[in-house]
Design a protein around this nucleic acid. Sequence first.
DNA 1: TTTTTTTGTTTAAACGATTAAGCATATATT
DNA 2: AATATATGCTTAATCGTTTAAACAAAAAAA
Lengths: 343, 343
Amino acid sequence: MKKKQVSLKDIANEVGVSIATVSYVLSNRKDSRVSEAMAKKIKDIAKTLNYQPNKIAQSLKSGKTNTIGLIVADISNPFFANIARIIEDEATKLNYTVIFGSSDEKAEKSLHLIEFLSSRQVDGFIIVPSEGTDNQIAQLKQQNIPLVLLDRYFPDISTNYVVIDNFEASTKVVNELIVSGYERIGMIAYANPLYHMRERIRGYRETIQNHFGGKISPNLVEIDYNDSKKQVRAAIDNLLSGENPVDAVFFATNTLAILGLKYIDELSLTVPKDIAIISFDEGEAFDFYYCPLTHIRQPLDEMGKRAVQILTQQIATPDMGEKQICLKADLIKGKSSLAIYSS
Amino acid sequence: MKKKQVSLKDIANEVGVSIATVSYVLSNRKDSRVSEAMAKKIKDIAKTLNYQPNKIAQSLKSGKTNTIGLIVADISNPFFANIARIIEDEATKLNYTVIFGSSDEKAEKSLHLIEFLSSRQVDGFIIVPSEGTDNQIAQLKQQNIPLVLLDRYFPDISTNYVVIDNFEASTKVVNELIVSGYERIGMIAYANPLYHMRERIRGYRETIQNHFGGKISPNLVEIDYNDSKKQVRAAIDNLLSGENPVDAVFFATNTLAILGLKYIDELSLTVPKDIAIISFDEGEAFDFYYCPLTHIRQPLDEMGKRAVQILTQQIATPDMGEKQICLKADLIKGKSSLAIYSS
DNA sequence: TTTTTTTGTTTAAACGATTAAGCATATATT
DNA sequence: AATATATGCTTAATCGTTTAAACAAAAAAA
């Protein structure tokens, strides 16, 4: 009982003319030689029949789908949801549709998504790559499929990417804590070999090293993504115990910060009096934290837009050179890292 | 320089056989009569060439895209991001892809999205409809395009839908406040004519009415979505002023609650001592609110899954009757509506 | 008038897959 | 041996577009 969509053929039959003529008119090509009268007639009928071109057929013919495949770790994570929204808006502006998928930081899922979206002929990908997806990215590149990495990248694979300078951001965080008088600065990060995480950790380590010259060593705990809740609690216990408990903690992501702060509250510690905190990224969750958090703010808007722009450019001009964008992130000063005035 | 994707034709040429034979083998139809030897040869070559079927071509032939169009108000809103994730997972399980778009609660954008996704031949829609989209929904229905409304629906249009019983949920909220000893209960809602909002308001009004029998009247303020921040503040000022200031406020959505609580904090009012609060829906933001919020929890998981299931069923069996699911939401008791023991 | 050019439209191939129908050849049945 | 059936593969149409090429008729140039 379902009514088929109106096709060029239907219009052609109605008007009593060939499909080609209808096509020429409705794709209003400047060089077509269809008479004014005929054109009007066709356009009118098309309108009354409510004709909508079948993009699937167009895509098959043109080899273009005007579709972007977006792969993030988890669309329900606000960081990615926000960026997805920005990407959606920019893509719409450029007449592209977005198909998305969540990889859950798993290489296997990522591969499945890439194959899935490839077979649906997306024109290109924007990918937040997970651990162990190097080969997938290399493969896409080798197949000349337009691609932009977002938020993270592989230094060993030359691709388009849009990221922030994680090293520098991390440096800012640690410096802020040091300037504010904190000395025993711990860091909780993910045990993730990806470059962005390594850079955050390196920024932390080197700044501590440069400043304290070995008199105080870095105190870093790395967390397994799939067991984060338990391990974050253990990490905090760890950092707070021993002869030299930390007086400040730097969380490498907002999810870690949320888990950490919940536990710190459970321990009835007060921020920043008992312990100072700086987090990477924001989160609605922090809106109501009693102590406004000092944190790194990534330029999400610019990141998302740039990624779409670079991708669509590369789709249009495949031989365009690779674009590698590294933006600076800001340190937003809250009250969770207030200067210590008493000893 | 871009390498074309491998097609059946390429394999056929390589093997020296017709396209049809290759197609029969690779779509492993049980009734095909291709010899074992040939089949193996074709499969091997297909593997070495890394053949991936072109779904665009398959779709054109079959008239099916295995794609769901998802329209929500705003993918960056955690409520919708969460539901999008659930829908994604369920869709993947059923071998469907999801294309999404954000309507921003605007009928115009919604129409644009529907047309956009229709022309991309999505097999069906899951839509969180906005104000004024009745005709769009009616039109889709009239075109026999499979459709499930989510979270909201139009009582005047008979469609599939998955919603919660907003009236009942609202009733629970007000009863909880009354039982806890509150009497002057205000409500802040959106000035939105959609049924879900009307039902929340009706639940509030009727419960107040039933309980206080006119001795205390409902005290409702409706907010314009596009000016919510300012208007929520005004609403709270309003509810707290006059001869009979409210002692409790019921927020009709989590976004309203967030705005409201921020202002209440600014006013240095303490929850629930100075004012009791109950909110609809949760939000990461509440995780760190000093006073755990009493709120309505919608069964997001079930809503998302059911929506996908109903939609895919209807795609498979178009003459299936309409399914209308109304789930109950739970009241999660926090401490923001604690019983009053002093007068 | 004949030839050339322009104008308006149609024919047909193509994109990559599916699939009913056709056609040999081989095997089975009488 | 003659006919029927099974086996293995190919031909060709189809989905809805696009578009180069062909064609006929009208207008312009010779």
